[in-house]
Write a protein that binds this DNA or RNA. Sequence first.
DNA 1: TTTGATAATGATAACCGTTATCATTATTGT
DNA 2: ACAATAATGATAACGGTTATCATTATCAAA
Lengths: 154, 154
Amino acid sequence: MKDVTEKLKEYIRRKNLRWTGQRQTIVEQLLRTRQHLTTDELFRKVQKQDPSIGYATVARTLHFLVDAGFCDQVDISDGSMRYEVVWGHEHHDHLICSVCGKFIEIFSPELEKIQAKLVRQHGFIETTHKLQIFGTCIDCQKNLCRTENKPLAK
Amino acid sequence: MKDVTEKLKEYIRRKNLRWTGQRQTIVEQLLRTRQHLTTDELFRKVQKQDPSIGYATVARTLHFLVDAGFCDQVDISDGSMRYEVVWGHEHHDHLICSVCGKFIEIFSPELEKIQAKLVRQHGFIETTHKLQIFGTCIDCQKNLCRTENKPLAK
DNA sequence: TTTGATAATGATAACCGTTATCATTATTGT
DNA sequence: ACAATAATGATAACGGTTATCATTATCAAA
């Protein structure tokens, strides 16, 4: 946490931006909460800590955090963008449950290697990739699912 | 083409829906054109063949075609959904050029096998998956790119 | 062929997540 | 403390998608 703030302040100095209490609050809430929040979900949590912070500030701060490399934007085509913290986390792909909306993070060096090979074969220069596998998670198959995530649209 | 129409009519009979001239026109334009069209792009092409067809009909027909399994919805987070014909095409993933917007279709049985293994390991039941690799295509690296696709936003 | 039930259409309003605007406030280097 | 200007909050605007609704067209059954 301390390092996170420090690293962000460093980025801010480099870019001639400014560190504010709002940004502090928003980052705290992001770190305190489950991943893959929408702007609106984060806004509600931020409001509980400081009701004076507006929606636009949360949205802008998320953009700022993506630019800084602190967050990733995840689009699972459910109507709005989601954000997850990447600092301190390995790269990973997602299993996404269409019943409960849960994200399961997966990583396979094997997979990454084959992807890299395909990219090379096409003379492509990769910047990012995303692999999303949709289906039903093991808990939902057994009707044991307890997540509070909203199910995905449709 | 003849089979496509027949297969769609079969689906329509099963579901107690109705085959219309508009649907015929829209399917013709979809088959006649490069893949990965947005609703608006398809609407413009349809209008040239029959200016009386409305935007809503194109949008609804695309949903219908997705439900029928004729089309896939592709979301590359550029602001609007795109649609590609799947009947008569193998499953594939995408290399997407961030400079010219070009889609390169890739398929690797090796990759699919590893994905299936990961899914199995998590007790997940997969319905679909999408792998998108973003970067710069070989033509754009050489400034030789001639595609007319709009570059992606941002 | 005619008919009746109802699916489909076209025009457009509504919706919703995101972004832009703008006057005001707060931060930061000097 | 000051000046330059980045950031904020409220809200309007934007753009893609979906809903509404009166009208038309389809198609199975008579």
